[in-house]
Structure formats: structure tokens, C-alpha cells
Design a protein around this nucleic acid. Structure first.
Lengths: 170, 170
DNA sequence: GTCTATAATAGGATAGAC
DNA sequence: GTCTATCCTATTATAGAC
């Protein structure tokens, strides 16, 4: 996962994946018979599991919406290493390979937006508004990751996270 | 430029660059003796020229800040094909090559932010506030491009642009 | 399930004719 | 300044021993 998110699909070579996983190339092909596409699919599986457990679940748990958003922020802070790590979904959006993974990337973004919107509706925000604000939240998360990394300034990501409770308040 | 922005550095093959430019590989090497790095550097030159003329200049031109922001928006709408085209600076932020181009990417983002902040200060926004809001504007532009393309929904980018005049108002 | 060895191919880059 | 032909290396992928 760390190789794919930092290198993108085309940049992630088998040599790097082998080194990072500690397995020889042939062992990788034993576990992923379809090759690199299979490996990246497994990375997406892993991302989905991680998001489910650390981001979507807190957003759907009982409690005040503001608390749920803050729990999401805590998970994101760890997951994106305080803004120093790229977003896998964004990295996979580049290149020809993106066409193959596009459906899954799209679905993960949709599920994320829906989880946020769900929390907002629980806080009394009307359906349409909740959807728009949830999209705006993802826009800030993704955009701040791009800019924080480009400017070597993780504070940009951290400020974006801090802005979310207010954006998402009823 | 269109190849690099859509494919990233690693995904942009000489074959694609040759086809897109209409030149054979050897002709490309005649114009860019250092190879692919030289070609991408030229793409960054071209981007800088384009941004200077269509984005930075309007932001620094005389007139009310709101008007200048709207002129920037008009240029961005064209440049990003209403939200269907990726950002070259974001595409170059992925992979090992990003280290080589990072200084130029960083500087272009800084100049963009500074141009927006300049317009805000002219509108009476205090220096620190102007800087923060300009960064937030880029966050929205970049993030909305990622999300709009991932969800096949260019309206997300267009809404982000529409939100800028209010964000940046004094 | 992992390894070494090896294919097969694509990609970046060069030589030299025109 | 462009082309055809070629080289070299990295990369994806496979075969077969252990």
C-alpha cells in the first residue's frame, strides 16, 4: 500500500513491491496470479477494510455528529501521517490504469461521502445540504493533502481537518 | 502537456509523447537532449507561461478583487476543461520523479497563492488572513479536481470555483 | 510458499542516413 | 530537423527446483 500510494500504479514496480513486502517476485505472483493488477486490487481491499474500521464506522456510531467528525479526523491524522502521506485514491486516479480501478475508487469516495452525510443528517442537516457539505469535506481533505505535500507544509492538512467540524456543524 | 498531466511522469511513455507531438522519438531527443526530464521541464515552462498569462496576470491587474478572482475562475474553467482534466502539478507530485520536479511545483504553487493573496490584500484583507485564504482557495481547486474526476461529476469543480469569490471577499 | 533463473517485452536512449 | 534502425536496461511475468 505504501508503495502504490506514493508511486502511483505506473511508478510502483515489482522490484519495489517485492522489497517492501519482503517477498520475492515469484512469491508475489503465487499470491497474486493476475500480477500487478491483482496486487493493487488487494491494496484497495486493504484500504476499504481500514476505512471501514477507522473512518466509516466512527461516522456511523451513535453520539453527537461533532464527536463523530472528530473521531474521523483522529483516524485521518494517523492514516495520512499528519499530512505527509499521499492519498491512495488520488494516486490511482492518474494514468491509464486509473480506468481499471476507477469504479472502485469512485465507490469508496461515494461511501465516504455518504458516511459523512449520514452523520450530518443525524445532526439535523437536510439531505441535500448534508450531501453538499460532505463533498466539500472530501474536497478539503484531498486538496489539502496535495498542497501540504507540494509545499512541504503538513500544517495545511491539519488546518483543513480542524475546519471540518465547523463546516459540518448543523 | 496533455500526456504528462493525464499520465503522470512514470505513465508518460516516449511512445505517447511521440504520438501526441507528432514527432518521432529521435526528433524529441534532438529538441530535448536530456530526455524525458527535459521534456517535462519544458511542459512546466509551458505551464508557467500559461499560468502567468491567464491566471496570475488577471489576479494582479487593477480592479476590484472580486473581479480579478472571477477572471481567474474563467481561465481555470477553460484550463481544466470544466473539471474533467487533471492538474499537472498534482500529477507530478506522485512517484520518484516528483523529487526532481518538486522545487518547481512548489514554487508555482507559491506564486499562485501569492497572486491570490495579493488581490485579497488590495481588497483590505490583512496579510496573514490573505495568505490563509489563498491557500484555502488552492485547496478547494485541487481537491475538487480530484473528487470531480473520481466521481465523474465536473459540477463539483464548478461549485468549488463558485465558492471562491465568497471565501476571498473582504 | 519461497526461491533462483530466465524468458519476453516495453521503455528510454543513441547512431547515422537523409 | 526528421527519420529508420538499433541498443540497453528495467519491468512484467513464468518455469521449475526446493
Amino acid at each position: 500500500m505504501s508503495v502504490v500510494r506514493s508511486q502511483g500504479y505506473d511508478g510502483a514496480s515489482l522490484a519495489q513491491l517485492s522489497k517492501a513486502s519482503g517477498l520475492g517476485k515469484s512469491s508475489l505472483y503465487h499470491h497474486f496470479p493476475e500480477g500487478k493488477d491483482d496486487m493493487v486490487a488487494a491494496v484497495l481491499d486493504h484500504l476499504e477494510t481500514t476505512l471501514d474500521a477507522t473512518v466509516f464506522a466512527p461516522l456511523r456510531a451513535p453520539g453527537p455528529p461533532a464527536t463523530r467528525i472528530k473521531r474521523m479526523n483522529g483516524s485521518l491524522l494517523v492514516f495520512y501521517r499528519e499530512g505527509r502521506e499521499a492519498c491512495l485514491l488520488a494516486s490511482l486516479g492518474i494514468g491509464d490504469s486509473s480506468r481499471r480501478f476507477h469504479p472502485r475508487v469512485k465507490q469508496l469516495f461515494r461511501r465516504w461521502i455518504e458516511a459523512i452525510a449520514h452523520a450530518l443528517r443525524d445532526g439535523g442537516v437536510p439531505r441535500g445540504q448534508a450531501q453538499l457539505r460532505a463533498e466539500e469535506a472530501i474536497v478539503r481533505i484531498e486538496g489539502s493533502l496535495v498542497l501540504a505535500r507540494s509545499l512541504d507544509d503538513p500544517a495545511i492538512f491539519q488546518r483543513a481537518l480542524k475546519s471540518l467540524p465547523e463546516l459540518l456543524a448543523s
